[in-house]
Every structure is written in structure tokens, then in C-alpha cells.
Nucleic acid binder design. Structure first.
Lengths: 101, 101
DNA sequence: TTGACATGCAAGTATTTGCTTGCCTATAAA
DNA sequence: TTTATAGGCAAGCAAATACTTGCATGTCAA
């Protein structure tokens, strides 16, 4: 866990659209790009272009927070919590409250 | 803790220089702007101009992570962990490992 | 094979970020 | 009062971001 890794992780989480993508992938893993676009609309949020969502997913993927699996022509995305827990161990944990239960 | 608050907190932590400032304030609270500039050099890091450090402190202060207290012409900075713990409670905690010990 | 679908790639643009430079204000010390 | 010190304000600039538009590629179905 280098300083650059922490940069990428915090930067990825610093955007509300990306945090919503994380939340949707936590609720249901293995979603395609189109499913994630539709999910935004389903939650009553402003529609996002496919390219915009794709670029957000790239940011999350480069931070290691999203893992990708191809199934034919469909790219399935799922949450990867390892880097976040590593960030907690490497830096964030010093400053966080101990989690209650 | 609004989504904007989370934006500000994660964005503030997404820069290595700002994380080092946080670390230095954790090690010793109530440091002035000049002390924080000197601290960078003392740690063997590249010197930073007063204005650059000041702008980083503004970002941390706007995120609520740094609390300021004036003493004469000296502005003393200290770490404020409340917002970080609030961010953990509001969002981050869902995805973090339970802290060992 | 043809056409529809899921996604990638690349260029263009407006905004933000990180940093610098130059000048100004206010407090403290000589 | 003069001078040095701690910091603020504002403009300028290169790089990064967030998003769009247009076109290309690869996969599946009819």
C-alpha cells in the first residue's frame, strides 16, 4: 500500500457518483455497464451517459476497488474491498473510531 | 454528514502532502503555518512554499479536519477527527474491516 | 451473413487543482 | 516609530477532471 495507492483510493471515493456506484455494486455484484447506467435512473438520479459511467468505473478499477470479469461481450463489475481494508491498515485506521460491534 | 461533506473529506485526504500534514498535526497539535512548512523539510521532504501549505490547510479546514485557533498573529492548527468518524459512521463503515483491537 | 447490442477508443471542452509570484495587513519586538 | 515576523488576498498557469460526441471493435442472434 503505497502513498499513490492511497491517493487513488481516496480520489476514487471523493466523487458522489462513484460512491453510488460502489453502493449499487455492494447491493448487487456482477453488474454490467448498462445495468449500472439504468440503476442510476432507477434510483431517481439524473441519467448518466454510458461513457461517463465507464470512466467512473475506470477510476474505481484503477484504485482496485472494482474487479472486472468478462462474460462474452458483457463486462461484469463487482466490488473489491481489499484495497479499502489495506488503506485502513496502512493509514486510515490511525484516525478512525473503533467500530462499534 | 451530507454527500458534499464526504466529497470534501475524501478529496482532502486524496493528496499525499495533505496526509503528511495530518500526520504531523497528529504527532504535535497546535502548529503554525511556518512550523508546518519547516516540518516538511525536517522530514526530508521537498520544501513547500508558505502559500502552498496554506492552501492545503484551507482544504483540510473546509473539510472540517483541521481546527484553527488564533494566538496573536499566529494561527495554530490542530487535527479534528470528528468529521472522519462521522464519515465512517455515515458511509465508510459499511465497507471497512472491523478494526482489530 | 446481416444486424443489433455491449463496450472501447479518442478528441474536444469547461472546470478544478496544485502551485507560484507579487503585494497587502496585522502583530510583535527593538 | 521603525523593522521584522505571521499570515492573507488575488492573479496566473500547467496539469488533471468530468463529461460529451463520434466512430470503431467484438459478440451474439436471426
Amino acid at each position: 500500500m503505497t502513498s499513490d495507492d492511497l491517493d487513488a483510493i481516496f480520489k476514487a471515493l471523493a466523487d458522489p457518483t462513484r460512491r453510488r456506484i460502489v453502493d449499487r455494486l455492494a447491493a448487487r455484484p456482477r453488474q454490467s455497464l448498462f445495468e449500472l447506467c439504468a440503476g442510476a435512473v432507477a434510483e431517481g438520479q439524473p441519467a448518466m451517459s454510458r461513457q461517463a459511467v465507464s470512466q467512473h468505473l475506470d477510476v474505481l478499477e484503477r484504485a482496485g476497488l472494482v474487479r472486472v470479469e468478462w462474460s462474452g461481450r458483457t463486462k461484469l463489475h463487482a466490488l473489491e474491498l481489499g484495497p479499502l481494508k489495506a488503506a485502513q491498515a496502512a493509514w486510515l485506521g490511525r484516525y478512525l473510531a473503533e467500530e462499534a460491534g
